Lab assay of single mutants.
Amino acid sequence: MDPFVVLVLCLSCLLLLSIWRQSSGRGKLPPGPTPLPVIGNILQIDIKDVSKSLTNLSKIYGPVFTLYFGLERMVVLHGYEVVKEALIDLGEEFSGRGHFPLAERANRGFGIVFSNGKRWKEIRRFSLMTLRNFGMGKRSIEDRVQEEARCLVEELRKTKASPCDPTFILGCAPCNVICSIIFQKRFDYKDQQFLNLMEKLNENIRIVSTPWIQICNNFPTIIDYFPGTHNKLLKNLAFMESDILEKVKEHQESMDINNPRDFIDCFLIKMEKEKQNQQSEFTIENLVITAADLLGAGTETTSTTLRYALLLLLKHPEVTAKVQEEIERVIGRNRSPCMQDRGHMPYTDAVVHEVQRYIDLIPTSLPHAVTCDVKFRNYLIPKGTTILTSLTSVLHDNKEFPNPEMFDPRHFLDEGGNFKKSNYFMPFSAGKRICVGEGLARMELFLFLTFILQNFNLKSLIDPKDLDTTPVVNGFASVPPFYQLCFIPV
């Protein structure tokens, strides 16, 4: 058959498939802009700032609406009420993970971030239990974070109060905490193996944040037939998995079943207990991918939040002064901060919360999916439909947070200066898919920041009023603009 005829037939089939998918069930789905064949609503979305586009569309179609990214149908949730109703009140029905062709290629359905069903539930339950087990290797997770915080302070001392970009050092600290939990080992910041790991993690975040990856996920045929950065992403992930597998083999040879040292040991012990169960989800494949998931999810998000926190503290020296006064009063100079201190430091706690609220790190979270046909607000959402959640619409709700575009710790303080919780605080998402490392991340943010401010004054290279804190939105995360500062020993 003539190649031209084959091409026309293929394009015609794709067009018909697109029209059929977009028209099927439209009477039951939430409203939304009319999609174009094949490309859907992509032309109506700013790929570099999806969150802003969703906010604009919500003003037209309401808090629940339908979009098509290519052939992929998505239902968008915008605003606290619908997000709570879906992710919390109907948590089980909305607990699936959205379709990610690239991740599915890399992870093969294993791990904790992109798995679904029984596998996801069992691996998540085990990971939560293990991360909360403060007795691994007779050292609590808090001990590990405190140790890394001391190392971080010593690295900052080496800058000798000269101007520096904190990106690298602030990236090393949370990565080392995860390494300590998974591998029972922290690395020197100049260790070549550690630097290679950091390089792969950072490069992957840069790649994932590009519009090209959005295109690959919406048109998965590209993955096999086109060159691009997605190939580098898959190569980096394969490198990390190979490295983790080597460490798993080392653990198998040296493990003491009665004295687990780290996450890998705990997983291997669980595998041993379930070795007679042919349906067990505790396999080497799941261990390797879960460890890679924890490394990827637990490094860049925390380091970016820390980097943004220091920029905001530079911009608002009056806030920094209040935090340091609270540190001096509650902790002093002669001991290290600990998590028990947080309950006695409402202002510092409010500042950490406000940093996370203000920066809105992951504006749309990772997409969910419905696990069955769901009736939601008089609409029928078919099983498997991807759910896109606007966390921006919750964290920047102007009824809950007056002047949401302003950095103001009073958003989390009552009139008496006591810490005030808010149900709208969802930087880790909400419901059954809430970030498994939430507790660890909150511990790291509090301890790293208090250790830094206990030991250093922060000095800006320019007038604080002239510092730009506008986030650089890159399609996946909101990151701070480049800046330098000086760490002046107190």
Rank of each mutant, 00 (worst) to 15 (best):
D373H: 07
H230G: 06
K421T: 13
M406C: 13
D256S: 08
F419A: 04
K275I: 04
H99W: 11
F183V: 04
I359P: 00
L461K: 12
E328L: 13
V436K: 01
P409T: 05
I141W: 15
S95Q: 11
P367T: 06
L128Q: 15
G62E: 01
Q252N: 09
I205Y: 09
P37M: 02
I359T: 09
I123L: 13
E93C: 13
K399T: 15
F94N: 02
R433E: 02
E325G: 11
S429Y: 02
R329P: 01
F65D: 03
A86H: 00
L131R: 02
C216H: 05
A149E: 02
D188V: 07
V248L: 06
W20I: 13
R357G: 00
R124H: 03
K275D: 08
N133H: 11
S209E: 07
R125T: 12
K185N: 15
E285V: 05
H99S: 13
E400A: 10
N231Q: 14
L440Y: 04
A103G: 11
L306Y: 01
F425M: 05
L237E: 05
Y483C: 08
L156D: 00
L90H: 13
V351R: 00
L366S: 03
F183M: 09
L313R: 01
I182R: 02
Q146S: 14
M443R: 13
E250L: 09
T210Q: 12
L445I: 15
N398Q: 08
L380A: 09
F282N: 02
D360T: 09
D243A: 15
L67H: 01
S393H: 01
L71D: 12
K421E: 10
G109H: 14
T364D: 05
P480K: 06
R73F: 04
L245A: 14
N202P: 04
L201T: 09
R307Y: 07
N455K: 15
I387V: 08
R433Q: 03
L268F: 05
Y80T: 04
Y308Q: 06
S478L: 07
G137S: 13
K235F: 08
H396S: 09
L306W: 01
G32M: 00
T320M: 12
R105W: 06
E325F: 08
M129D: 15
K322P: 03
